[in-house]
Structure formats: C-alpha cells, structure tokens
C-alpha cells in the first residue's frame, strides 16, 4: 500500500499543477518525511513545520521546477536541505536523532518453502532493531524501509557510502543473532 502510493505517477502535478495529485503525494510521503525531518531537527513540532514548508515551496514553484525522476528521493533531499537551513537559522547544530521505532513482520505472500519465523523470533528481531545505535537505525530505515540505495542514503545523511555499508552490516549481524541458533532439526 505504502509502496504503491510512493511509486505512483505524480507527473501530472508537475505538468499541470494538478491539486488532487499534489494532495495524494503529500498523503503518501508526509509520514516518512516527518520522521526524516525529525531525525535532523530533533522534535516533532519543528519536523512538521519543515515538511509543510517543503510542500508549500514545491506548490509555489511547481511551474519552474523540472519534474524529478525520483519523487521520493527529491522530497527527502528537499526535507534535508530545509531542515538543515532551519537549524542554521536557529543557530543550532544537529543534536539528537529521533527514536525511530521499527516494526518487523513477515512478507505477506509466503511461499510454501519459506521457513516460518515464529513470534518469539520476531520479538527478538524487534528488540534487536530497537537496540541499534540511532545512526545505524536511521540508515537501516532509509535503506530497508524507504528503499534508497547506499549512494542515496549516504547523500541524504552526509555520510560516505562506506559508512552506510558498515552500518548496514552491523544491523544485519544484530538481526542474525536475534534469529537464534540454527534450526534444531537435523538432516537424515
């Protein structure tokens, strides 16, 4: 659901100033953008202001802006810039990262050969992600939930691609450990 609306075609907004499409776009992206803004400015109220400003500016400049290839990445970059400007104007530095919580679940469509992950394991994974250092969790969310490439995530967070790689490996290791020992049955 989230994925499909994020991948939807928003081109008629840029071409014709289509208001309904603009609203769909706000609806689809604003929760994610709000989290991202929050991870930079550090609190919910200011994050909302940043995201609202980004959309207002986009609406006002719709005629001058070249339609972006990747709407999602475009919006995240706009939020990053606006949020950093916001901090600068207020004479602050990036202080703390918002505590993003992550929910783990199965893929909806399960193949018969998929091995079932039990509730206990899911809880462990959940806890493992929760215990990730904030920076690591932020990278993890941009890559795994938003679907950004290492390159894109690195640009959004002003990090190197290598750092993103290292952090993702750390995240994977934690989840790996949370899955517990290898299956108990033996091959005969």
């Amino acid at each position: 659901m989230t994925m499909s609306s994020k991948a939807a075609d928003y081109s008629s907004f840029w071409a014709l100033g289509d208001l309904a499409v603009f609203k769909q776009m706000m609806k689809a992206f604003s929760p994610s953008l709000r989290y991202f803004a929050c991870s930079i400015v550090g609190n919910e109220a200011e994050a909302e202001e940043v995201v609202a400003d980004v959309f207002i500016k986009i609406w006002q400049q719709r005629a001058q802006v070249t339609p972006p290839d990747n709407v999602q990445y475009y919006l995240f970059k706009a939020v990053k810039n606006t949020a950093l400007n916001y901090l600068k104007q207020n004479g602050r530095r990036q202080t703390h990262l918002a505590a993003w919580e992550v929910e783990v679940s199965h893929h909806h469509a399960q193949n018969p050969e998929d091995i079932l992950i039990n509730k206990e394991q899911l809880d462990h994974i959940q806890a493992a992600i929760q215990s990730l250092p904030p920076r690591c969790r932020q990278i993890f969310i941009l890559v795994k939930e938003e679907g950004f490439s290492y390159e894109q995530a690195a640009t959004l967070l002003d990090l190197s691609k290598a750092t993103v790689n290292v952090q993702m490996t750390i995240a994977l290791k934690k989840i790996w450990a949370a899955l517990g020992p290898t299956l108990k049955y033996s091959y005969s």
């Binding site: 989230t2 992550v102 989840i175």
Partner: peptide, 13 residues
C-alpha cells in the same frame, strides 16, 4: 529467513 522479513516504521504519526 532474513529475506522474508519486512520492516515498517511504527506509526507514531
């Protein structure tokens, strides 16, 4: 098993 997992931010919003 890891490939089967999907992740979603908890909707605080």
């Amino acid at each position: 098993m890891i490939e089967q997992l999907s992740f979603q931010k908890k909707m605080v919003v």
